[in-house]
Simulated scan of single mutants.
Amino acid sequence: MTAQAPVAIVTGASRGAGRGIAIALGSHGCTVYVTGRSEKAGDHALPGTIYATAEAITRAGGKGIAVRCDHADDTQVQALFDQVLAEQGRIDILVNNAAAVYDELSMPGNFWEKPLKLADMIDVGLRSSYVASWMAAPAMVKQNSGLIVMTSASGAAHYSMGPAYGAHKAGVDKLAFDMAVDFRNAEANVSAISIWMGALATDRLLAMIEADPEKYGYLRNQIETPEYTGHVIWALYNDPALAERSGQTLIGAELGREYGITDEGGRQPPSYRDTHKVVPHQHYPLIIR
């Protein structure tokens, strides 16, 4: 921790989970860099832009800074990190949330019957999380502090919307585990954690529930606000025992309960452990170098 406001980068934050997480971190006084491709209305079928998110962060009490960045382009990602370090001199929190999510992901059919573009989720999701972490790690190791978070979900451990989605979620869980091994090997006080978010009250999910209430209506009693995970991340960042959790995949609702964080209306979101009867995979401690 420093006297300077913590500096966070939240990727894929024009809307949805990223937007909520970024605003929540702003409410705790963070300087938050917001990345995404949506700069104006109409850039995406769903509402939301990087500038609108940045303004909401500032209104919440932080400082929002929008940076247009396509996370499929490593050159643009490098420019983002160069800008953050030039302007702030440090990176305290990186939230890897960018992903290529298409409507066809939840449509009926087997994976070969859906568009091949769904494989983009492995590039802008799994690979982009690796790239952003690779670029953040040197600064975090040098300052000997930092937290890298992967936004994940229970689809890492059971079938959910096909192999592209599952590979992304399972992959980021494993990224967090392996990155933590390397940070410990470097004797760096940097942590990597993957968080299973619950069903989120995003424009996309709310539209899905409205379009097919028979199939998705049950989610109304389970959804979390997109900001909830941001408050959980802030609590993790300030946890003196954070290093002991590094490498773990944790259920956001359970972390919230542990830290005493409630969602809108004082409600406590349910855990996948209860609703789906699933928990994150436990990785073996064996290390081969």
Rank of each mutant, 00 (worst) to 15 (best):
V124E: 01
A17S: 10
I9W: 01
T49G: 11
A186W: 03
N221D: 15
P108A: 09
A157D: 02
D263I: 02
Q222S: 05
I91P: 03
A54Y: 01
Q143N: 15
K142Y: 08
N144T: 14
R245P: 06
A56L: 08
G217T: 11
I65E: 05
G260S: 02
L236G: 05
G12V: 03
D70G: 03
Q222M: 13
T11K: 10
T31E: 04
Q4W: 00
E187I: 05
G29S: 05
L80K: 10
L286Y: 08
A167P: 00
A211G: 06
S152K: 06
I287H: 13
G29E: 02
C30Q: 01
A235Q: 04
H28G: 00
Q248G: 05
M1N: 11
L116Y: 09
V95R: 10
P47F: 06
L175N: 11
A180Q: 03
A192F: 00
L80F: 08
I261S: 02
I50D: 01
I233F: 01
M140T: 11
M179S: 14
T2N: 08
K169P: 01
R90N: 09
M179I: 12
R127C: 12
L206C: 13
L175D: 10
N144E: 14
N189I: 09
A241I: 07
P240Q: 12
G89S: 09
A176V: 07
I65F: 01
T35H: 07
D178N: 15
M150Q: 13
Q268N: 03
E264A: 09
R68S: 08
P163I: 08
D73L: 12
G64Y: 02
L105G: 10
R220M: 11
R184Y: 08
Y237V: 13
G61Q: 01
Y284S: 14
V141K: 07
P269A: 09
A235S: 12
T35N: 02
E39P: 04
R273G: 04
Q143L: 10
P6W: 02
R19L: 05
T11A: 05
V34I: 14
V34F: 00
N221G: 15
K40H: 06
R289Y: 09
T58C: 00
L46Q: 09
P280R: 14
S152M: 06
Y228C: 04
Q78T: 12
V172Y: 00
T275C: 07
D173N: 15
G29R: 09
G62S: 07
M121L: 10
A8W: 04
P240F: 11
A13V: 01
A52M: 08
D70E: 06
P270A: 04
I122Y: 03
R90M: 03
T249D: 06
A136D: 07
G155R: 15
T225I: 00
I21F: 04
